[in-house]
């Protein structure tokens, strides 16, 4: 029972990633694409943790932490670049 609900939650997150991806392709400006990328990485962190628990590979949690760090630095770098060039 609980496993089915977990799988449904994972599927809903996958649909959410598809929606942000469509916005990333459509987005009229660079900032729109950066916002969509930000949302995508955060949903991807949740999915990595979900996969870590459902495949029983706890080492993937470290991957999620490093991915969170790198996505934060990446978004701030994009913002700096938009503002006045790196």
């Amino acid at each position: 029972m609980a496993n089915i609900i977990y799988n449904i939650a994972g599927m809903i997150s996958l649909v959410a990633i598809v929606l942000t991806f469509i916005r990333m392709i459509l987005g009229p400006t660079v900032a729109d694409r950066a916002v969509a990328l930000d949302g995508m990485t955060i949903i991807a962190i949740s999915l990595i943790v979900f996969i870590a628990y459902s495949f029983n590979r706890i080492i993937y949690l470290d991957v999620a932490i490093v991915y969170a760090l790198i996505s934060f630095v990446g978004i701030v770098a994009i913002a700096r670049y938009l503002e006045r060039g790196i």
Binding site: I8, A9, I12, S13, A16, I17, L19, T20, V35, S46
Partner: peptide
């Protein structure tokens, strides 16, 4: 996951 979906829908 429903909140994640609503956030994506908002984007």
């Amino acid at each position: 996951s429903l909140f994640l979906f609503l956030g994506a829908l908002g984007i």
